[in-house]
């Protein structure tokens, strides 16, 4: 039987504090339920930190949504209700009230799960709104990425999950879905836009080195150094970055790594 083993690295935009990292991610590793999500809060959204936390947490909860159009439509309504219920009774200013009422919050969404882990045809399934991207890697080669954006397409997608109730139907309509067969040893990487764009470029240059490196990162400081170097070299757009790595394996983990 296969199972997943996930790690999520993240780094805030250069110039922000760690508590201002406005992406979020969540994973639930298991042999029966394996679910993963990465969301990217919009820079100008109101209280994006709360919105992305809601989205990530509820996606991997015991009552998380089915990964189909109807299931996600119902989930959108559910998380919007959570958002509205947590609104302040009194706003600190007229501007804050306008922001909450007129703009609300917004985040891209990439959700995935592994199914059939105990059967002959295990596979990943994913749903997306926006430009957070899943990469399926086998034997150091990229098999597929989803949504299938090209390098020039990042930053242009208007899609994501909004706090506005009127957006539920358009969001449900615009959801994209994909799936792929998996084998033991495969890796899935889920990355927010700036990093996803960089991954696509680097994968063209020397993908064996790239995927080996990312498979081996075992410390958040290593990830932070990698991101800082690429930003300094002008290769990676200065934005919040998140990388959720899902390793598919038949073995239990042989050791625990605690970062110093």
């Amino acid at each position: 039987m296969m199972q997943s083993r996930s790690t999520c690295f993240a780094l805030e935009k250069l110039g922000s504090s760690p508590l201002e990292w406005e992406d979020a991610a969540a994973f639930r590793d298991g042999s029966t339920t394996a679910r993963f999500v990465v969301v990217d809060g919009a820079t100008e959204a109101y209280d994006a930190l709360r919105w992305v936390e809601h989205l990530a947490g509820s996606f991997v909860a015991d009552d998380g949504p089915a990964l189909d159009r109807d299931g996600l439509r119902a989930w959108f309504t559910q998380v919007q209700a959570m958002w509205a219920a947590a609104a302040p009774d009194v706003f600190a200013s007229v501007i804050e009230e306008l922001k909450f009422r007129d703009e609300g919050s917004f985040a891209t969404f990439l959700g995935a799960r592994l199914v059939g882990l105990d059967g002959a045809h295990p596979r990943w399934e994913a749903a997306a709104l926006g430009d957070t991207v899943l990469f399926h890697v086998r034997d150091r080669r990229l098999l597929a990425h989803f949504p299938p954006l090209d390098v020039e397409s990042f930053g242009l997608s208007p899609d994501g999950i909004s706090t506005h109730a009127a957006s539920v139907e358009p969001m449900a309509r615009r959801l994209e879905f994909a799936y792929g067969d998996i084998r033991a040893g495969d890796l899935l990487f889920m990355a927010t836009d700036a990093l996803a764009q960089w991954l696509l470029v680097e994968a063209r240059r020397n993908q064996h080195v790239l995927w080996d490196l990312l498979a081996d990162v075992d410390h958040d400081a290593t990830f932070a150094a990698l991101v800082a170097d690429q930003r300094a070299a002008g290769r990676l757009h200065n934005d919040d970055v998140t990388l959720l790595r899902v390793a598919v394996d038949t073995a239990e983990p042989s050791s625990l790594v605690v970062c110093l």
Binding site: R5, D216, V217, D218, H219, A221, A228, S255, V257, L260
Partner: peptide, 24 residues
């Protein structure tokens, strides 16, 4: 970048095995 970096230095990855779970 060097001036911006803080916290522990990146560890040597030699000997690391992919079957480990990183505690988070």
């Amino acid at each position: 970048r060097a001036a911006r970096q803080s916290g522990p230095a990146a560890p040597d990855m030699a000997g690391y095995r992919r079957s480990a779970r990183i505690v988070q």
